[in-house]
Simulated scan of single mutants.
Amino acid sequence: MAPAVLTLLLWMIVPLAMTLYFSAVRYNLMQPGEHGFVGLQNFEFFATDPAFGPAIVNTLLLLGSVIAITVVLGVAIAVLVNEPFPGRGVVRVLLISPFFVMPTVNALLWKHMMMNPIYGVLAQLARWFGAEPVDWLTDHPLLSVIVMVAWQWLPFAFLIFMTSLQSLDREQMEAARMDGANALQRFWYLVLPHLARPVAVVVMIEMIFLMSVFAEIYTTTSGGPGTASTNVAFLIFTQALMNFDVGVASAGALFAVLLANIAAVFLIRIVGKNLDR
């Protein structure tokens, strides 16, 4: 296994080492001759960027909102679809399908087909009810991105919860029903405890992947208006490919890695506690 392990380590360590190096030197593509050591100045420049504070807030809002939407709706839809009805197999396939749509396609679909203020589906619905259409990407940019990302990640949460419900003890549910427990009581005392581990897993996985949401923002709002929808990933992109400052972008990337690892360690501990129960 040594060659495979060595290849994996090189594949991981070499890019990380290069990022560490670039974060400690002055490396701007517009000034190719200056590669002097600057210490922590790149980190200071990244942290003092006027867009840094809004980017952190937007990232946390995006993470919290998408996770809350996908967990709540995922549990609700999984419980609903778990009951037998005609065409259940087809409905399950349709509910899972959005997860396989590429992020860029997802963003274009919502931008042009759903949220366009002139010919979008939401604009047509608003006119049908006699209301004024809303320019979602201009008036509510972050909310629009949250809706797009939640729409794509909801099938993932639904799939995990639906699979978990397949192992729920039906005899226990039937016994509770015969003892007089209503639907809400059965859900609260039997279904939710059974879904504790899947919920922890979904939160952990989504937390890690949602830190790097980029395509939806780049395709629809470009981080604007202003910094209204800029997150950490898009701020790093701005420094790297718009300001041509590889050093500052590398410092931002290390900050994002640190933030993701802190969240991952915290969530892994939560998952571990749930698995020990």
Rank of each mutant, 00 (worst) to 15 (best):
Q41V: 11
I13G: 07
P54G: 08
V79P: 00
I67T: 04
W110T: 05
Q31E: 15
I13M: 09
K111V: 00
L109F: 15
A68F: 07
G39E: 14
S97N: 13
F45T: 15
L63P: 02
F46N: 02
V66N: 09
F45K: 11
V105C: 07
T19Q: 06
R26Q: 12
E44C: 08
G53E: 12
I13T: 12
L10G: 12
I77N: 00
I69E: 03
L20S: 09
R26I: 06
F52G: 01
F45R: 14
A55N: 00
V57W: 12
Y27V: 02
L20E: 07
A55H: 00
M113L: 15
G33H: 09
G39W: 11
T59G: 09
P103F: 07
P50V: 05
G39S: 11
L61G: 00
A68Y: 06
I96Y: 07
L60A: 14
N42T: 00
V14W: 05
N106G: 09
V81K: 09
G89M: 04
V25T: 12
G74V: 02
V66G: 03
L16G: 15
T70Y: 00
I56M: 11
E34T: 10
L95W: 02
F52M: 08
R88S: 05
M102K: 06
F43V: 07
Q31N: 04
M12H: 06
L63C: 08
A76C: 09
N106F: 02
Y21E: 10
A17D: 07
V72H: 05
V75N: 09
V71Q: 04
V14P: 01
I69G: 02
N106H: 03
E83K: 14
G89A: 05
D49L: 00
S23L: 05
T59Q: 08
V66M: 07
W11T: 13
P84S: 03
A78N: 00
V72R: 03
P103W: 09
M12T: 12
T70A: 02
L40Y: 10
L60R: 08
F52Y: 14
M30A: 15
L63S: 08
T70N: 00
V71A: 06
G89H: 07
V91Q: 01
F99E: 01
L109G: 09
F99L: 12
F43E: 04
V90G: 11
P15S: 10
I96H: 00
A76Q: 11
V72L: 13
G53Y: 12
H112S: 13
M113C: 11
P50L: 04
V57E: 00
P54M: 03
P86A: 12
V101M: 12
L108W: 00
T104Q: 13
N58E: 12
T19W: 04
L108T: 05
V75M: 15
S23F: 08
P32E: 11
F37P: 07
M12R: 10
P98Y: 09
F100T: 14
V81P: 01
L40H: 05
S65M: 09
T104V: 15
G87E: 01
V105L: 14
V72F: 03
T70I: 04
I56D: 03
G64N: 06
F22V: 08
